[in-house]
Amino acid sequence: MQTSAPIHGTFSVKSGLAQMLKGGVIMDVTTPEQAKIAQEAGAVAVMALERVPADIRREGGVARMADPLKVKEIKQAVTIPVMAKCRIGHFVEAQVLQSLQVDFIDESEVLTPADEEKHVDKWAFKVPFVCGCRDLGEALRRISEGAAMMRTKGEAGTGNIVEAMRHLRAVQRGVDEARAAMKAKNSKELARLAKEMRVDVSLVEKVAEAGRLPVVNFAAGGIATPADAALCMQMGCDGVFVGSGIFKSADPLLRAKAIVQAVAHYNDPDAIAKASEGLGDAMASIDLRTLAPENRMATRGI
């Protein structure tokens, strides 16, 4: 289309915001006061929520999109981008969040899924979406649906980094497989990978050429310390989401600042050491071996 007029909601405009968030920390907040603390600590965005994952886990029941009033209050409290979560497949919650003019929608497994067959058609929205993934196939299925940013799922609300690592490694393994097939000019293998991942082969080729996901990829789920955050960064992710890790810790502002420092200087152990000093207690955590399959959030979604 040849036009000299401004165009809104294109994929490059949507994925562009994710590009600007790189190297940053996105923090879960449940009140305007928490949002202000996150901004003061140097968060690049906040995720407006009714309850943080640790509380969703503890209280049970159906977890839904936040009250629009809460989203509005949080938007008013800060100048940094405000994200909000909708349930997997709940395209009306997504419509509501777009109407509230949130900056990013997280179609999130942390909330109770609304649809077990289909995710939201994200091409239909002007607001960009971020979605969770456990491996390359899941990431590419979400990108096919229009996601402008990915995050590895990890296991939210556990304060345990082990699942985030598993998912980061799985995504990288998928990328390596695609690259190897491309390098060997093995089009059969590329087609097999695409079929296995249930995505178009052109998307797998794109990954193979770039040697990474075609959109920005953050780590999420279980990050509780500055060292956890830097670990994810050294694993090659573009930034981190910290959910319960901040406001369920003993000193949220101090810990939030420390995690921001550790992400900005993720390759500098001296800086990470300094940031990690005297932060008080981290959030209460869970050994994944004690978590029943039905209580796992990462397995939600298709």
């Binding site: 000299s4 401004p6 809104h8 294109t10 949507k14 562009g16 915001l17 981008p81 949130v102 960009p128």
Partner: peptide, 23 residues
């Protein structure tokens, strides 16, 4: 404005630099 108001557009060039018609 917020992200829904983000956009892409060619620019009207008024100096020595030329970005062409790129959005």
């Amino acid at each position: 404005g917020s992200q829904v108001d983000s956009f892409e557009s060619p620019l009207e060039m008024t100096g020595q630099m030329d970005l062409g018609k790129t959005r």
